[in-house]
């Protein structure tokens, strides 16, 4: 892991390879994440999307290649995981859950500071959950839980937010709340969204990264069926609903 003060991008990934067992899941990936970028990461199941996020977060260590962070970015990456990755029935209050985003390798033996509690209150306000702060997360709906996870990822004041399938387990109303919140956050910080539903984000995103072991990077308006077919390994249909690049995979 390198740290460079004069880096142009927040994160620069070069020739990254990683896999489980002996099989590479992601191979020779290079990707730049710029300040205030908004990247959609799409691709088929098993294409390595979540794996790439975990590599960026340092949960997994790459076989090969480098991930360089701009000064002070490493460890200050917000992460909103899928619901299935944590203990959803853990008895904890909304505010304690959000507060736990402040915990790091350096401060886990200390008590929460007043400043950390203040930031947590602010973030719960931001995701509109202040009235639920003393409730248990067990009693929350999918949309509310999603917002707690976002609050948790924001309390450490990250410069970049990684979200893994944020629209997967929430209803359509919660989805539009989420999209508005992400747009608002994107004024300040970079956002990377792993999704199977790029349609939802089609108005907001700046770059589209398609991952199926290898990575294909596109700006807006550079995507065609041939490229997608290459990524998904099957014919893919592009449908325009007045929004560019709405993608539906044919089964």
């Amino acid at each position: 892991m390198q740290r460079d003060n004069d880096m142009e991008h927040l994160i620069e990934i070069r020739d990254l390879t990683f896999g489980y067992g002996r099989t590479a899941v992601v191979e020779d990936i290079s990707l730049d994440i710029a300040d205030k970028d908004y990247i959609l990461l799409i691709g088929p199941n098993g294409g390595g999307k979540t794996t790439l996020l975990k590599l960026i977060l340092g949960i997994l260590k790459p076989w090969n290649g480098t991930i360089a962070f701009q000064k002070d970015i490493a460890g200050q990456i917000g992460y909103v995981p899928q619901f299935s990755s944590f203990n959803r029935n853990f008895p904890i209050t909304v505010s304690e859950m959000a507060l736990s985003g402040c915990i790091s390798g350096r401060n886990y033996l200390k008590r929460y500071s007043r400043e950390e509690r203040r930031r947590t209150d602010m973030m719960l306000e931001k995701v509109n959950l202040s009235d639920k702060r003393n409730e248990s997360i067990i009693d929350l709906s999918g949309g509310q839980l999603q917002r707690v996870l976002i609050a948790r990822s924001l309390v450490s004041e990250p410069a970049i937010l990684l979200l893994d399938e944020p629209t997967a387990s929430i209803d359509i109303t919660s989805q539009s709340t989420l999209l508005n919140l992400l747009d608002e956050l994107n004024q300040e910080i970079a956002i990377v969204v792993v999704t199977h539903d790029p349609t939802a984000f089609s108005l907001s995103y700046r770059h589209l990264a398609c991952l199926n072991k290898n990575l294909y990077f596109h700006g807006r308006g550079k995507l065609d069926a041939a490229v997608l077919e290459n990524i998904y390994g099957c014919p893919v249909e592009l449908i325009g609903h007045g929004v560019p690049h709405t993608i539906v995979q044919k089964h």
């Binding site: 977060l57 340092g58 944590f86 203990n87 853990f90 736990s100």
Partner: peptide, 15 residues
């Protein structure tokens, strides 16, 4: 509590 609640997140936070 961090590892009981969300082990992966704890790893991401370098615990």
């Amino acid at each position: 509590v961090s590892i009981a609640l969300d082990e992966e997140y704890a790893r991401a936070r370098q615990l």
